[in-house]
Computed example of a mutant assay.
Amino acid sequence: MKRILITGAAGFLGSHLCDRFIEEGHQVIAMDNLITGDLKNIEHLFQLEQFEFYHHDVTKFVHVPGPLDYILHFASPASPIDYLKIPIQTLKVGALGTHNLLGLAKEKQARILIASTSEVYGDPLVHPQSEDYYGNVNTISPRGVYDEAKRFQESITMAYHRFHGLDTRIARIFNTYGPRMRLNDGRVIPAFMGQALRGENLTVFGDGKQTRSFCYVDDQIEGIYRLLFSDYNLPVNIGNPGEISILEFAEEVIKLTGTDQKIVFKPLPQDDPLQRRPDISKAREILDWKPTVDREEGMKMTYEYFKSLSREELEKREHRDFSKRNTY
Rank of each mutant, 00 (worst) to 15 (best):
F12D: 04
S15M: 01
H16W: 13
C18T: 04
A30H: 04
N33K: 07
I35S: 09
I35Q: 02
K40L: 01
I42T: 10
E43H: 11
F46R: 11
V58H: 01
T59D: 09
K60V: 11
F61R: 15
V62M: 13
V64W: 05
P67A: 15
L68E: 08
D69S: 14
S76T: 13
S76I: 08
I81K: 12
Y83D: 01
I86P: 07
A95K: 15
H99W: 13
G103F: 07
Q109A: 15
I112N: 07
L113H: 09
S116E: 01
S116H: 06
T117L: 02
D123G: 04
L125W: 06
Q129C: 14
Q129K: 03
E131Y: 04
Y133L: 05
N138Y: 09
G144Y: 01
V145R: 00
R151Y: 02
E154A: 08
I156Y: 01
I156K: 05
Y160H: 12
G165E: 13
N175F: 15
G178C: 03
N184G: 10
D185R: 03
V188T: 14
I189T: 06
M193E: 01
G194Y: 00
F205D: 10
T211C: 04
S213H: 03
C215E: 08
V217H: 11
D218R: 12
Q220L: 15
Q220S: 13
E222P: 02
Y225E: 06
L227Q: 10
L228Y: 12
V236S: 05
N237V: 11
G239M: 08
G239L: 11
P241G: 12
G242K: 14
I246C: 10
I246P: 02
F249P: 00
E251D: 05
K255V: 02
K255P: 00
T257Q: 03
G258D: 03
K262H: 09
I263E: 05
Q270F: 15
Q270I: 15
L274E: 15
Q275L: 15
R277A: 14
R277L: 12
D279A: 09
A283R: 08
A283S: 09
R284F: 04
W289Y: 06
P291H: 08
T292N: 15
T292P: 00
V293G: 08
V293L: 09
R295M: 14
E296Y: 06
E297L: 10
G298I: 08
T302M: 01
Y305W: 14
F306V: 02
S308I: 05
L309P: 00
E312F: 13
S323M: 01
Y328E: 12
